[in-house]
Amino acid sequence: MALLEVNNLCISFGGLRAVDDFNITIEKGELYGLIGPNGAGKTTVFNLLTGVYKPNEGIIRLDGEDITRKSTIEINHAGVARTFQNIRLFKNMPVIDNVKVGLNERFKYSTLEGILHLGKYRKVEKEIDDEAMRLLKVFDLDSERDTLAANLPYGKQRKLEIARAMATNPKLLLLDEPAAGMNPNETKELMETIALVRSKFDMTILLIEHDMKLVSGICEKLTVLNFGRVLCQGETKEVLANPEVITAYLGG
């Protein structure tokens, strides 16, 4: 059974069909790319998958479970985590606390225990601290644990956003233009980070990206969107050689 199955997903804003009859099937462990020209509806698809928008039609299944009309929070708990095109960190909090927020729903104690610092507080906080440090080490951010997130360099902010998403222990990770605004060196490092996430956590990833070097370098399968519709779908090599894709998006 596929990890993510989307059938006939549609949404309109007023008279505009932003996403029309969108289908995608992602198997467990795959690295899947979603590409297309600006305004094609890529981020809208992400917002539909994470419950920010509710679709007019269609069905979304994660690991067999129907998550179509669930709230953003429920979808996150069901196992979908994401990053944003324009980085959204908790800027005034230290790096480690950003990750700890991601762990919030996995390591619990009651509010009263939290206020009194009694009961399970010490034990669970220790677990949270250890787990957060473990994640920061994986992403090579452990030396920055007490830096405010806002003061991190750009590349590390991207990494921290991925680390925070991974802290929620997702089944599927959605990356919205992770390489946007990066120089070639940073992009290279990002590709290594993504490879690391896959190998270390055995993660299934769906990413939106314009950087074709990154896309052709790491994605196994691609879906091309154009004007809200799927233009082409399949193995990366075949899709990138498709004449329709070249006219609509790649140019050439």
Partner: peptide, 17 residues
């Protein structure tokens, strides 16, 4: 931490569960 996360970015907080 959750309260401060909501303060800093409520969209990201929601997406983080």
């Amino acid at each position: 931490r959750a309260i401060m996360a909501v303060r800093d970015n409520n969209i990201a907080a929601e997406a983080t569960g």
